[in-house]
Lab assay of single mutants.
Amino acid sequence: MLDDRARMEAAKKEKVEQILAEFQLQEEDLKKVMRRMQKEMDRGLRLETHEEASVKMLPTYVRSTPEGSEVGDFLSLDLGGTNFRVMLVKVGEGEEGQWSVKTKHQMYSIPEDAMTGTAEMLFDYISECISDFLDKHQMKHKKLPLGFTFSFPVRHEDIDKGILLNWTKGFKASGAEGNNVVGLLRDAIKRRGDFEMDVVAMVNDTVATMISCYYEDHQCEVGMIVGTGCNACYMEEMQNVELVEGDEGRMCVNTEWGAFGDSGELDEFLLEYDRLVDESSANPGQQLYEKLIGGKYMGELVRLVLLRLVDENLLFHGEASEQLRTRGAFETRFVSQVESDTGDRKQIYNILSTLGLRPSTTDCDIVRRACESVSTRAAHMCSAGLAGVINRMRESRSEDVMRITVGVDGSVYKLHPSFKERFHASVRRLTPSCEITFIESEEGSGRGAALVSAVACKKACMLGQ
Results as ranks from 00 to 15, higher is better:
residue 173 A to G: 00
residue 337 Q to F: 05
residue 404 I to K: 06
residue 199 V to C: 04
residue 246 G to P: 09
residue 86 V to T: 06
residue 222 V to Q: 03
residue 332 T to F: 01
residue 438 F to G: 04
residue 137 H to Y: 07
residue 10 A to E: 10
residue 406 V to K: 00
residue 104 K to W: 13
residue 192 R to W: 04
residue 9 E to I: 09
residue 411 S to Q: 07
residue 160 D to F: 01
residue 214 Y to S: 15
residue 284 P to A: 14
residue 10 A to P: 09
residue 428 R to A: 13
residue 272 E to F: 05
residue 406 V to F: 01
residue 324 L to V: 11
residue 79 L to V: 12
residue 42 D to Y: 09
residue 258 G to S: 11
residue 223 G to C: 02
residue 379 A to C: 06
residue 369 R to F: 11
residue 113 D to E: 12
residue 395 E to W: 13
residue 297 Y to N: 01
residue 345 R to A: 14
residue 410 G to Q: 04
residue 50 H to W: 01
residue 357 L to Y: 08
residue 226 V to N: 03
residue 177 E to V: 15
residue 129 C to D: 00
residue 146 L to P: 02
residue 133 F to C: 01
residue 246 G to H: 02
residue 188 A to I: 00
residue 352 L to K: 14
residue 12 K to F: 11
residue 269 F to N: 12
residue 57 M to Q: 04
residue 186 R to T: 04
residue 194 D to H: 03
residue 343 G to M: 07
residue 445 S to A: 03
residue 261 G to M: 04
residue 257 W to L: 10
residue 373 S to H: 11
residue 311 D to G: 14
residue 353 S to C: 06
residue 194 D to T: 10
residue 413 Y to T: 03
residue 364 C to L: 07
residue 152 F to Y: 02
residue 346 K to T: 12
residue 49 T to H: 04
residue 16 V to N: 09
residue 299 G to A: 07
residue 311 D to L: 14
residue 236 E to V: 02
residue 118 T to S: 10
residue 127 S to K: 06
residue 30 L to A: 03
residue 7 R to N: 13
residue 421 E to C: 12
residue 321 S to W: 08
residue 116 T to S: 08
residue 135 D to V: 09
residue 22 E to N: 15
residue 59 P to K: 11
residue 86 V to K: 00
residue 387 A to Y: 00
residue 331 E to T: 14
residue 196 E to Q: 12
residue 313 N to C: 14
residue 24 Q to R: 09
residue 281 S to D: 10
residue 372 E to Y: 09
residue 263 S to P: 10
residue 389 V to Y: 03
residue 29 D to Q: 00
residue 229 G to V: 00
residue 164 L to A: 03
residue 196 E to C: 14
residue 219 Q to P: 14
residue 447 R to H: 01
residue 243 L to M: 10
residue 338 V to M: 10
residue 98 Q to S: 09
residue 70 E to N: 08
residue 76 S to Y: 03
residue 26 Q to D: 13
residue 454 A to F: 09
residue 166 N to C: 09
residue 320 A to M: 14
residue 316 F to S: 15
residue 165 L to A: 01
residue 387 A to N: 03
residue 340 S to Q: 08
residue 33 V to T: 09
residue 464 G to T: 09
residue 249 G to W: 08
residue 113 D to K: 14
residue 160 D to M: 03
residue 383 S to A: 10
residue 241 V to R: 02
residue 253 V to H: 01
residue 286 Q to E: 04
residue 209 T to G: 02
residue 140 K to A: 04
residue 129 C to T: 04
residue 94 G to R: 11
residue 399 E to P: 07
residue 442 E to V: 14
residue 168 T to L: 01
residue 415 L to G: 07
residue 169 K to L: 01
residue 298 M to Y: 05
residue 20 L to S: 07
residue 164 L to T: 03
residue 394 R to S: 09
residue 277 V to L: 10
residue 374 V to L: 08
residue 11 A to N: 14
residue 151 S to W: 03
residue 411 S to H: 08
residue 453 S to H: 02
residue 399 E to R: 12
residue 313 N to G: 11
residue 65 T to N: 15
residue 137 H to W: 07
